[in-house]
Design a protein around this nucleic acid. Sequence first.
DNA 1: ATACGCTTTAACCATATGATCAATCGACCG
DNA 2: CGGTCGATTGATCATATGGTTAAAGCGTAT
Lengths: 215, 215
Amino acid sequence: MTEGSDSGAERDAREAILEAAHEVFVRRGTSGARMREIAGAADVNQALLHYYFGSKEGLARAVFGRAARRLMPAVLRAVRAEIPLEEKVERVIGTEMEVLGRHPYLPGYVLCELAHHPERADQLVEAALGEESRTAGREALRVLGRQLDEERKAGRIRAIKPEQFLVNLLALAIFPFAARPLLEIVLGLDEDGYREFLDRRRRELAGFFLRGLRP
Amino acid sequence: MTEGSDSGAERDAREAILEAAHEVFVRRGTSGARMREIAGAADVNQALLHYYFGSKEGLARAVFGRAARRLMPAVLRAVRAEIPLEEKVERVIGTEMEVLGRHPYLPGYVLCELAHHPERADQLVEAALGEESRTAGREALRVLGRQLDEERKAGRIRAIKPEQFLVNLLALAIFPFAARPLLEIVLGLDEDGYREFLDRRRRELAGFFLRGLRP
DNA sequence: ATACGCTTTAACCATATGATCAATCGACCG
DNA sequence: CGGTCGATTGATCATATGGTTAAAGCGTAT
């Protein structure tokens, strides 16, 4: 109602809460997060959190859905696209690295959340896929499987199950973000060093992956 | 303290607490875990937890160190071993898959823990590497870098930084365990299906990885 | 017998925390 | 201006939670 009633800030309390909650949930983990801290970060009364989201659980659900919707659809679309395999690999990796570059802490958050709440996870992932429901995953696998079959028959790649293909791709792209704190220590890199590491990776990863497919 | 004073169960309270705490921490996350639940699971009084570990923080630290010591050393040893590259890749992947097969929830736990406590993480990882301190990581990288250099000069592989090599290897091996709840949904697999998926993976992964290295 | 370390029991404290409620604010409508 | 209704607040409640304490039981070693 009455858009732009205020200055440029466009102070929408609900959105401010989601934003603040996201930050706090990511940093502290869902059970480590405190409603008071979220309210403070959103510069809003704690009661308002319950007014909009009912409970901490409800807020967590909303935040998770939001995060999932940021991560999944773009990649899924790239996986399902009807384009040559090489281009697809480049696009998936490019999309993934670009999204994760903007939200580097999302993978860790999502994986942690799923590890502790596997039950509600599928309902949320389902929500993340938008209207296409949960068949989107298997649909993407079918498209991919057919494409891999054709490429193999043409002798351009060896046989590989689409599941293995997809997990390899996701693993190589996502793991460096999800495991960043660990890898920084193991590799002995500081923040800048890690950024450089990721830059190089963006350039080399598709090549590595595609070579792995060759007959 | 007279080992084996009791029956076969060898009821060592301290160990029972660690075991129970591990299970609860993994399932609920560190901040989601309750000292009372841990005490109950260990069939021990809550006061005893504090008697041995001082605080929840102390207990969490001990449990994390224990987990890290289970995950890291074997792999690090395989990475540093003075054996041909192909054999090394097979051994690292084999070791990783075997350890993770026995402790499938460790990666998720360790990554979550590190995501929320990056500060104390390095001190713990340090502890996990035993007496060799934190130089072990960089030492492994040096050995690996030298080996990759030789292979490249011999024309058997293309140029690749040891950091990228290592992260690729770890990503491909660890990610399927860390992201298991997510992948089960995306791939539409139940528990048995996922086991089968992992079996196939163990057989095919080294080949995929080694092909990716070829010139 | 005595001392000592491990363990239990049971209660208790201070605080943190999620949740709730009545009251207030502020815009819009008549 | 008075009224209505959703948005927002300050104060408060009930409980959960980490941590502590004191007293006692028990087995072993000295």
